Amino acid sequence: MTESVDVLIIAPEVPAYAHPGDAGADLLSAESVRLAPGERALVGTGVRIALPDGYVAFVVPRSGLATKHGITIVNSPGTVDAGYRGEIKVTLLNTDAAEAYDIAPGDRIAQLIVMPVPRVRFIPVETLPESARGEGGFGSTGYQNTLGSNA
């Protein structure tokens, strides 16, 4: 079992975990919004938190909204720093090309994941140590297509 962390909160409804073991607690909309096809909107949650130093909260999409309705978060994950005390808002995007999507107060629109983050020291050097991956990135390992061959 992992250690719990106390997070001070002001909210019309406290985010809750849907199931034991869930990483993200559901964030609810505090307002009504209609997202037309291709439209994005900044949606308030009414939630304000005070994270302990050394922690961050990430706002991430809900997989059911993405799969069933094409609703995602534009800047996912949204980062809530420990020093931020304003309302957590979510920039939702309707990726459906044909159907509008209506959001009502109390609808689950995103998840909030709280994690520890270490403070790092950046140490300037002339070269970096070698690694197995090297400079490969942006699809350099290929991908598996539906026919089973690597591209």
Rank of each mutant, 00 (worst) to 15 (best):
T45Y: 09
A82M: 07
S76D: 10
L93W: 15
L93M: 08
E99V: 04
L93Q: 13
A41M: 01
N94D: 02
P15E: 03
L8A: 06
L92N: 04
S140W: 12
A16C: 11
V117R: 15
A16L: 07
L35G: 01
V120L: 06
S29T: 03
R48T: 02
P37R: 10
A82G: 13
L112H: 09
P116H: 14
A98D: 15
F58T: 06
G106D: 11
R34Q: 10
V43E: 07
A30M: 03
G64L: 00
G44P: 02
L65A: 07
R40L: 03
R34H: 08
T72N: 07
Y84K: 11
A66L: 08
S131G: 05
H19Y: 11
Q111V: 00
M115T: 03
D6S: 06
H19R: 13
L92D: 09
V80I: 14
L42K: 12
T91R: 10
P105N: 14
A82H: 15
V120P: 02
A30T: 04
G54C: 08
G38F: 01
A132Q: 11
P77S: 04
E87W: 15
T91V: 12
A25W: 13
G136V: 12
N94M: 03
G83C: 08
V56W: 03
A66G: 11
G78F: 07
V5Y: 13
V90G: 07
G24F: 15
V90Y: 09
G134M: 05
P116Q: 14
A50N: 14
F122D: 02
S76K: 13
K89V: 05
G134R: 08
Y143P: 00
G142E: 03
P124R: 01
E135G: 10
E13S: 08
V90N: 10
G24I: 04
L27M: 09
V114S: 09
G64M: 13
S63T: 03
P52R: 14
I113S: 07
Y55V: 06
T141S: 07
A132R: 15
K68H: 14
R85C: 01
G44E: 05
A41C: 01
T91D: 15
V80G: 12
A18F: 06
T67R: 08
